[in-house]
Each structure stands twice: as C-alpha cells, then as structure tokens.
Amino acid sequence: MTPDELFQDRIDRGIKIEPKDYMPEGYRKTLIRQISQHAHSEVVGQLPEGNWITRAPSLRRKAILLAKVQDEAGHGLYLYSAAETLGVSREQMIADLHSGKAKYSSIFNYPTLTWADIGAIGWLVDGAAIINQIALCRCSYGPYARAMVRICKEESFHQRQGYEILLTLCRGTKEQKAMAQDALNRWWWPSLMMFGPHDSESTHSEQSTKWKIKIVSNDALRQKFVDQTVPQGEYLGLTFPDPKLRWNAARGHYDFGEIDWDEFKNVIQGNGPCNRDRLRARIAAHEQGAWVREAALAYAKKHEKRAAA
C-alpha cells in the first residue's frame, strides 16, 4: 500500500492520527484551516459577550459571564496548541486572521444589543456549537478530538447558564420578556447559519468525510439543533421567527423555513453588522500589545544570558 492508502486504512479502522504520523498534505491543510478557524472563533467570540461584562445586571451574573468568557479564551489557547501540532505557529495563524485570510464563525459578526443577547448566545450559539463539537469528538485527528471532549464539557455549562438567563427574563417583567423575544428574533436565523451551507453546496464535505474530519453533514446537524431547541423555546413561552416552523409527525422532525443565503454569504464576505469592528478590535489588541510581548521576550533573553554567565 502507498503511504496515502495506509493512512486511509488507519482512518477506516478508527485509529487516531497523531502529530508525528504520516498525513497527506491536504489533510494537514484542511485541519489547520478548520482548527485555526475554530480557535479564532473562540477568541473573537470573547468580544460580543465581553461587551456586557461591565454592564451585567447583578454581581452573580457578572461572575458567571466573566468565567464564561475566560473559558472561551482558554478554548482558544488549546485549539491554537492543537493546530500548532500540525506545524503552523500561533503567530502565523493570528496574522492570517488579521489579514482576513483565515475566517472565524460568522455568528460573532452580529451585535449584542441587550442583556438578553447574552442569554441567547449561551442557549443558541453555544447550543449549536455543542452539536457541531460533539460530532467532532470522534474526529480522526487525536489532538483535535481530545480538545473537543474537554471543550464540550464546558460548553454545556455555558448553554445552561444562557438558558437560565432567558428563563429569568421570561418570568420577569413585560419589558424583560420582550427583551428575550427580541433576542430570539435576531439570533435564531444566524444560529441556523452556523451549520454552514446545504450539503449539496458544501465545498469541503466529501473529502473531509472520508478523512473523518467531518463526521455528520451540515443539514443533519442543523436538523438536530432545530429538533432539540424548539421545545426549549416553547417552554420559555417564546415564538420562533419562522412561520414555516412546525412538527412533522411523518418525518419525526420539525420542518423549518429556508435560510436567507444571501445574508449568509454577505456576512462571510465581510459585510455583517460587526465584521469590521471585530477585526479592528483584535488587530488593535495585537498592535497595542506588541511592546508588551517584545518586553517579555527581551527580559527573558537578558535573564537567560545572565543565568548562563
């Protein structure tokens, strides 16, 4: 067998690929793209939620949100490390994010306008992320699969905390309930978009499936999310912004309307409400932090020399 055939054989037999193992260049590149994109999403994702830390409505909520955003930065760290095992540096990945070459989840290009949005992000965005990530725990690349196991545990916490924010709002005053409804109205469709284009339109699907980088198809994951989420929304007493949404007993699934793919493409292309702000904030943090990183390096070098002398 050729190296590529041996590689495929290992994957077919369910043996994890580890950093030092042989892998086809395409596999390495696809994983770097996917894992770094995932890492960037965690880091950029700090911004819309961080937007409400200083305005959280109680000290308890503030502590929970701070801890959550900190978890996300931590996820970013281990995902960058997982990608580094594939031979790309964190510096390079960050440069690619800032130049626009690398993407991050489009959902974070939507604004957090009210406190209810923090609940909606936990419930819907983390909920959708978990569905994606549970599938990825079985991915063929060892470091990524293991990172996913750890991340999934924390994300399910976040999802419950988000839902609890909305539950409190829905049991609160009329204004609070309206705030929750408004958040669902704005976040529902972008959450569905998180699963990507229809399977028929997805460019990377076939090879990724063969390599077990992609385990379940976009449409199947999206359906799973809808089926799981709709009853939760009904329990809150909220209405989903989709007149076509209804239970289909014959299929055993909810039917739902078509995503606005025009909006989807535009947000990916950089035209979402916050694309420019998010990137600007990340670039500013990096540039304004340059002198700090340089100082830390200079200090370490000086002391290395002194220790050696």
Partner: peptide, 19 residues
Amino acid sequence: LAEWCGHGPVLEEDIALTN
C-alpha cells in the same frame, strides 16, 4: 480589569487579567 477582557496584549494575559 474586566474592561481588558478580549483586548489583552496576548491571550494568556487576557485569561490572567480575567482571573
């Protein structure tokens, strides 16, 4: 310190400041 969240000079510091 919470104002730094998401804007730290390096990811590790972002985490430490939040901590």
